[in-house]
Design a protein around this nucleic acid. Structure first.
Lengths: 253, 253
DNA sequence: GATCATAGTCGTCTGCCTGACGATAATCAG
DNA sequence: CTGATTATCGTCAGGCAGACGACTATGATC
């Protein structure tokens, strides 16, 4: 029996990206300003339509490269210089989430090191890193950043919150926190990533003991650096381990 | 500017269900036999098209009820008798995953207690519970169950594997294992759930100490039962806690 | 009714991990 | 040289998990 296209409703499918990084001790997300209605002028997550013959992951990787110049990280290859971790987050399909039509959005989560270029390349429209608490602050009027006074477009606040929560929990039991660091980094830099993502202060001595004692988490490169001031610190690369057992413990309260 | 429907490709959107239960000490999944090509006669996961004005979760709950009579569990309400846990799993959108057309499937994971009716109601087509290792066994010919000789249709083996892995990890740090139990259950029954899902043997004494010592996990109902033989066991209900801290530990190896 | 098999429940002990925190080391700014 | 800063090592006590002994309460079997 031939396929009957009228037998099911047609949907538009998009990918939206939660791109996170750590800048100046704060967890930040990539936001773009909408140039078209609806929500014209409001900030939103980057994203776009999935093409007719494109896999979902490929669409997310394409959007990520367009907005940031970052390439999705293929776990099989050694980490290239401009690599970001990319994974599917969740799918949002409320019938009313886009007032124009029925859109199902497959959200993806990307974790990137702090980019040397604060203004990512790509289209001419406005793109910026913004601290997630500013973007999620419901009392937008009280946000320190007046430019972010309005909440995110569509259901993007919800998507961003889900992405942040995923990142917060995933660095507990995986080595993903290294995705926020450059290729070589110090224990202190890694600790500041945890502190920024979790929003807590961690004991430097216990943290050092824990991460250096977890097999496969960190590999010393031999070099040292003093870029943080103070005593020079050893440099490390991310080791092969992806799952941490026992996990890092997020402090209560 | 009005919306232009030709500006993006049209997709079909479906929900597929990984419905898991524990029967006779084995983790089992719900499978339906396909009556139409492609993959006619092969086993597949239950699922169907999302309707034009239907939320993704609602579509998954509707399919679940049609196939099993189970209702999705609203966390705000007390657990009704025929309730199952339902959550979104992941979305699968390979352009070639359905040979007929471009289909994006939003897979959901449902965890249900062992149903009194071994043959779930619903449509007249063939439905059964099958041990997940039979369904996932690549060497289908060696499967003990000759009826399951062929692999699952479409990419459903991958979806099922992802769902099983999600369930295995989620019972570590959440109280979701109780979703596999009836409303009242014993510590031993809960332990057999963990043993079936993880495929390991657990020490009854340490397990008992752990689950009864975790605040909010179990609430004694006062009753006892002897349905397992041996000394009567206390009956419990699931407590209010959803996240277990510290988590249950899955044995290595 | 005595015995056995089965399952549940309570304790003990030891080792490991964590959190708290003291102490020392190596750099830079004045 | 002194102080500030960061990194790193060490110590100690408390808690939790794994291994496992012991006892309890039922049904089945003789």
């Amino acid at each position: 029996m031939p396929y009957d296209p009228s037998a099911f409703p047609a949907f538009a499918v998009t990918v939206d990206l939660v791109v996170l990084t750590v800048r100046r001790h704060a967890l930040c997300a990539l936001a773009v300003r909408r140039g078209e209605p609806p929500f014209k002028g409001r900030w939103a997550l980057p994203g776009g339509f999935v093409r007719a013959d494109e896999d979902l992951t490929a669409a997310a990787a394409r959007e990520l490269a367009e907005e940031t110049g970052l390439h999705a990280h293929d776990p099989a290859l050694p980490v290239p210089p401009n690599a970001a971790h990319l994974e599917q987050l969740a799918t949002y399909g409320d019938p009313k989430r886009d007032p124009r039509m029925r859109v199902v959005s497959v959200a993806h989560l990307a974790l990137a090191p702090d980019l040397p270029a604060p203004r990512p390349g790509g289209d001419a429209h406005s793109v910026r890193w913004a601290p997630v608490e500013s973007l999620l602050d419901q009392e937008g009027a009280f946000s320190r950043d007046a430019d972010l006074a309005a909440p995110l477009a569509f259901d993007h606040a919800r998507i961003l919150a889900d992405g942040v929560e995923r990142a917060r929990s995933k660095i507990e039991y995986s080595s993903l926190a290294t995705a926020f660091c450059p290729q070589e980094f110090t224990v202190g830099e890694l600790r500041r990533v945890y502190e920024a993502v979790w929003g807590v202060a961690l004991d430097p001595r216990n943290f050092h003991r824990k991460v250096t004692g977890t097999p496969g988490f960190l590999v010393p490169t031999g070099g040292t650096t003093t870029r943080q001031g103070g005593r020079p610190a050893q440099l490390f690369r991310a080791g092969g381990a992806t799952l941490l057992n026992p996990p890092m413990l997020r402090p209560e309260v």
